[in-house]
């Protein structure tokens, strides 16, 4: 298995700042993206991404290409950090969570509608069990191959497909009105 990051990781570990910059350019948006999907919180997602890279810098000097690709390992670290934060949220619920979602601008502009739909989707995603949410984040939003996503989640492709199918069915039920609004034409609009 050829790991496209192996050389960069080795160089970054040896203190090559250009290699470190290349790793950040290549992976930071994905780390933030998957954490946003998991946590529905931009600031927390950036904290997670930063923590992932701190671990990368710690591991890079002694990184040895093994069974998993570096990107796979990074995604696993990111998801585990998200699972930890979600568990802490369950244990200590934030009373202010979700208060920032609503936008009360009076004019129903296209942008406003799009934001409302996005908020609904994010809320529906947040209701999914974590593993289903992670599967959809990786395959739908990150457009990863089924094999790569299954490897990150450390499950078989069949198990991944089961997570995806259950997640998508739940989203379809939760977002039926949004789909109707979006696809149903002008008469379906608000």
């Amino acid at each position: 298995m050829i790991d496209p990051d192996a050389e960069l990781v080795r160089s970054a570990g040896a203190g090559d700042t250009r290699a470190a910059e290349a790793l950040v350019r290549r992976h930071l948006p994905k780390m933030v993206g998957v954490a946003r999907r998991m946590l529905s919180d931009g600031a927390e997602a950036e904290d997670v991404a930063q923590e992932v890279f701190l671990r990368v810098w710690r591991e890079a000097p002694r990184w040895k290409p093994g069974q998993a690709k570096f990107e796979t390992w990074m995604h696993r670290v990111a998801l585990n950090l998200c699972y930890d934060r979600l568990r802490r949220r369950r244990e200590r619920p934030d009373p202010d969570a979700g208060l920032m979602v609503a936008d009360t601008r009076p004019l129903a502009s296209e942008e406003w509608l799009a934001r409302q739909r996005a908020a609904r989707v994010n809320a529906a995603l947040a209701q999914l069990p974590e593993r289903q949410r992670a599967a959809i984040a990786l395959v739908h939003f990150d457009e990863m191959s089924n094999i790569a996503a299954a490897e990150i989640l450390e499950i078989s492709v069949e198990a991944l497909e089961s997570l995806l199918a259950r997640g998508r069915r739940a989203l379809k039920a939760a977002l039926a009105d949004v789909a109707q609004d979006l696809m149903g034409g002008p008469e379906g609009g608000p």
Partner: peptide
């Protein structure tokens, strides 16, 4: 289409990469 409508095109904040790189070996 509904899911794609919620795709977050905003990238990481401007200073995040700098903060991360400041801690690089």
């Amino acid at each position: 289409a509904v899911l794609d409508g919620a795709r977050d095109e905003a990238g990481p904040s401007a200073d995040l990469a700098a903060r991360i790189l400041a801690a690089a070996p």
